[in-house]
Design a protein around this nucleic acid. Structure first.
Lengths: 197, 197, 197, 197
DNA sequence: GTCTAAACGAGACGGTACGTCGTGTCTTCGG
DNA sequence: CCGAAGACACGACGTACCGTCTCGTTTAGAC
């Protein structure tokens, strides 16, 4: 373990300023315009050559995804002291506010669009965004099964979707707003179905 | 009988053959390739000039959306003789199979992507796709409130989302398949929350 | 000869108002913009349908040419009482002022351009514009040969060109202005070469 | 000798092969068809993308003009040993044959047409075509004034036009052919007006 | 201090699709 | 038969991004 973990390679090292400038430019552009930013636009905004962009990222959505993660890396903490229902509701509530009150909602919607025609982006989004959150919910649901607060035989996979899907649904279709109490109402509905009396 | 419904307007009438050829071409292309067709491609496939396309539709997604409706116009019937739960579950089940077993799923996903950067498409999709289905569900939920099969005070707006959202969620993220019994499981979960004993 | 010379044909007769509106519209447009008017624009300006335009004229330059003749039909009078030199110089002078002081110059230049790719226009321009004026000059030159004011053996064809060509040359190339005394100077130069002492 | 004339600029250098292929394609197309080539056609013939064309030239006539100069760059030599009249007549004669016997005549006529609606082309043609030839003629005329072979007080500007204008006149109107002896006859006519006895 | 290899900038280039304009033709109805 | 209204195919336009390529320049660390 004594070895320097950062293997120094010969040649000029990658510039961190430029990397961050690119990520910030991509995010900014995605918010300003009503469309995915283009590689050209990102390069121009970041003051970086297109060559450099293509060197490090395969596509504009890929840049944007990394930008999203860079800025919204809310760490997911497993707090097992909370009652299961509160832990789950809190998680949904955090998502509602993140999507509604920050830029994450817009960025995420654009990325979901891009993922429909770019398999690499789709998988990256599953790995870095959806799966971690889903695993978190599944963890608490299984905890509930263990401690008896969740009815035995509950279909946890489906419940995980039932908790989050309405939020993404409203983000994508925009047929109804993301209300303040949305998480609480979802929690009440689902808990009525799976909670023990 | 003076009620000649066809008001003859001056000028050469629009060719219905061409219109249908365009809609069919758009749908066909969308299925073959795994991407939204371009205006160029639609025109070439339909044997129609690009000018004509732009005369009648503002964008490629707009053509595709109309083509989709033309080919998948499964009429929504309000069958009030069924028990509320069965009516709702049946509706969800129809959606699951439509999205999974026909091309509608792929097309819909692409159109949802396009709607994220094209307000007109977004509104057209709400009007022609989501709202009719949602209204259908709301109708049955209100019927359940009336006949006592749905618990008084139930948040029907939220329940409508809770029924459909998991299906679209899996369509968009593809983190889990649209199983055969998905509708039944969603129905069971939701009904446990809102059904009267 | 007693018969009515205007043969009345069956059907609705051609509207003279529309014809003149078209010619006027073509000429006006040619002056306003710095380009040949299009069929579309002429039709719109004249309040006439494109169908009607194509019925009576084969192309936009053809309309414009007729419009030009309609508005600038300065009648060419053969005044044989004037000395030959004065008659010729006067003719050139009239051309200089017509091209410089009226819209005819601009229109003519545009039509000459069109004639380079439209044989019909080219021939119409020769017949209605250049040949009449050239014949006029040749008439006076032959008169000069007869009355002895023009040197015997003079190449009248060439002289006719030498008189007019410099004027058109400056119109087309615009490398030098059409001065007030241009006709007089051309006359002096040519007369020094062909006049009898 | 530090005079390294080739200043290496950053970025990929412009491909000379492509540039020449474009110029050659433009000229070839103009000769084959009896019309100005389009950007599309030039690009296709030259095996070059339209983007590249638009990068270097603003319009099709601009390409053609450059192509014309590339292929017909008959160098103008100032031979002051010849008598002034012979020098001028020889210049006109060269023009007559160039316009009549090579493709230059057709091309030039088309370009003159284009120049009537494209200021940039008009100026380029003046700079690269007319002015050099006119200056050449003026040079000899002034030499004639100096050596006494041209009458004192001669209007050299007008004479320069009088020499060339008839040639362009016949090229443009095509009312009479460019005969073999045309230059000689123009020379005789003009010289009768300006020569010293 | 040089050497070296990667990062980086600048810009040319071939593509694909875009949305528009003008042309000329055709189709249908009304005066 | 004249004329209006409008659909339609075609060809060209000029632009926007794309992804790739060829250059030359910069820069940190290794020797």
């Amino acid at each position: 373990m004594s070895s320097n973990s950062r293997t120094p390679r010969p040649g000029r090292p990658r510039s961190q300023e430029r990397r961050l400038a690119v990520l910030r430019a991509a995010a900014d552009l995605a918010l300003e315009d009503a469309a995915l930013p283009t590689m050209d636009a990102i390069a121009a905004r970041a003051g970086v050559s297109r060559t450099t962009l293509y060197k490090w990222w395969p596509s504009a959505p890929a840049v944007l995804l990394e930008g999203l993660l860079e800025h919204f890396h809310e760490s997911i903490e497993f707090d097992d002291t909370l009652p299961v229902r509160d832990a789950l509701t809190g998680q949904v509530d955090a998502l509602v506010h993140l999507l509604r009150d920050t830029a994450a909602g817009t960025l995420l919607r654009r990325l979901m669009a891009a993922s429909s025609s770019d398999r690499a982006v789709a998988e990256a989004m599953l790995d870095t965004w959806l799966h971690p959150r889903r695993e978190h919910a599944l963890h608490h649901l299984r905890r509930g099964l263990a401690d008896g607060s969740v009815r035995a035989g509950t279909d946890v996979e489906l419940v995980a979707d039932a908790l989050f899907a309405p939020v993404y649904h409203r983000l994508v279709w925009a047929h109804a707003p993301l209300e303040d109490d949305l998480a609480a109402r979802i929690g009440a509905l689902v808990w009525a179905g799976i909670g023990t009396p």
